[in-house]
Design a protein around this nucleic acid. Sequence first.
DNA 1: TTGAAAGCGCTAACAC
DNA 2: GTGTTAGCGCTTTCAA
Lengths: 343, 343
Amino acid sequence: MTKPVPDPRHTLTLRDVSEASGVSEMTVSRVLRNRGDVSAPTREKVLEAARALGYVPNKIAGALASQRVNLVGVVIPSLSNMVFPEVMTGISSVLDGTGLQPVVGVTNYLPDREETVIYEMLSWRPSGMIIAGLEHTDAARAMLGRAGIPIVEIMDIDGTPIDHAVGISHRRAGRQMAEAIVAAGYRRIAFMGTQMPNDHRARKRLEGFEAALAKAGLTLADREYYSGGSALLKGREMTAAVLARSPDVDFLYYSNDMIGAGGLLWCLDQGLDVPGRIGLAGFNGVELLEGLPRRLATMDACRLEIGRKAAEIIAGHRKSDAKAGNSIELFPTLQPGDTIRKV
Amino acid sequence: MTKPVPDPRHTLTLRDVSEASGVSEMTVSRVLRNRGDVSAPTREKVLEAARALGYVPNKIAGALASQRVNLVGVVIPSLSNMVFPEVMTGISSVLDGTGLQPVVGVTNYLPDREETVIYEMLSWRPSGMIIAGLEHTDAARAMLGRAGIPIVEIMDIDGTPIDHAVGISHRRAGRQMAEAIVAAGYRRIAFMGTQMPNDHRARKRLEGFEAALAKAGLTLADREYYSGGSALLKGREMTAAVLARSPDVDFLYYSNDMIGAGGLLWCLDQGLDVPGRIGLAGFNGVELLEGLPRRLATMDACRLEIGRKAAEIIAGHRKSDAKAGNSIELFPTLQPGDTIRKV
DNA sequence: TTGAAAGCGCTAACAC
DNA sequence: GTGTTAGCGCTTTCAA
């Protein structure tokens, strides 16, 4: 039956700063946003009061009133494979100057989870969205399409973007690697990758790879998939399994550098002649490879540049009335390293 | 001079759903939030209309009206060293059931940047904050202290928390590793780490390490710092440099597993007897180590558990009026692997 | 240069 | 079960 005591430490509002400084709320607001003309003395009084009180503006109210939110949603499948952190670096480097802030959501390669994340993000009315991949649920595509903000799908350009796309062609990347391998004289080629039906980019690389092999009259000699666990260790294990099963294989193509690195370490442990007896290649161009005993052949995925370009599209949206449907294709370079025979 | 045409694709509001369904805004709101009693037919009509229109609620307005934001701010120094992604996994695993959503901000180990990130996050009035480390600017501590929400500082407990802390004692961790090394008979010990004045946890580990050495009558025989670049490669380079300069060193202590792995690969390349002639140890217990030719000695940092516990504190805050000042200490286990001599 | 009034889109509290 | 009223804390707009 006690009267509810008003929280003594209630959250501060503009009104509090206004009263403390003897300046109207409106003018306080102007000072705090550096907007309009405010005389130097007034400005000082306000700043002083705000600092003394420890006022933190309420962006929720600000956003509702101004219909403006300086947030950019970034939807990615995973944080743990070191490719997306680098994309984030690219995004941040561009956004940092603009007053826009990235907010990331992780989907774990689950389409339904992605749909939920997109829905949640859109409900905060961000200024733009950056989303990995071109494959989404119908509902997700619909939401994004009617959101009325710039949407940039990244990493991949093999498909039709909702609005904008920035990425590489993974099909082409797979094809190029296969061509290089065949040109180097390898003939019995095995593939190892992740068991992930929703990793569309890995899938497209393999499609391109197999298509190029077919053109050379070849098919994959063996293949092996894994899921979970330490990628480096899985690379070793899969490599051991494949070579036990198919001892005459002369090339190992991995869907990512981490398992490729594991495979390379295993081959070296076994004293195999790399790249003479057997060649290896991965994908991504991760920094880690630089510290290996031998440089694994790979292809960089232009991660930094993709992040940058995507952010530029969002940031530049106000001025450029760039129409939708634009794909920006980047071209990865093949780094043969020391694990493919020189022709 | 043309009259401004109202945007035909204006963002949908509750009102639109209300008109389309012939149900009052209030009831529509109730249906969309599963709140209160709504008859099945009304409910259906509303859901139908909302779906048909593609309505996405405006959380900004909702949050302002309800004074409730289901966001938890997570402030971390970096995404790229594979320790924080695992903390995030722990956080998400707990938050997923609660309706709370993590929002991450990255500081790059810059105190001023951290202050800004905290300010920005608080301005969205989150339900709680999780922040790496116990060292912050005075302004940041003040803001957090008066925010009126649960604050959990993670990773470290060597210091005084603002509200709650969950982590390990890095000083103790360093001490324990030194004791194990000394007990194994190593005497000429070198340290290699990052050149990062603001990585307080690495600093505390080294302090604990040196204190324990001192207690055994020893001092570091050599030390080397790096910054930037591929950690694996830097580990190799620093190791080569240290052993060239101090050939009689018999143990290499690394501030993280990645450079430790590089050092290990280098030692094996050189044909050094590990752990007989020389021992090595890192810190973190990263998954990567499992794929190496030999298991590097390390200490896990309880990352998953830290994330979990921190999230539990935030999520459980409504019921438990847990008072501030609580530190939860976790105890990492030393994993000797194959790079420390058995005693 | 400053202030007053009117909402932004939603929900709490209360009536019906 | 459903509707009405009154704001949430800001910013926009316009007047002074």
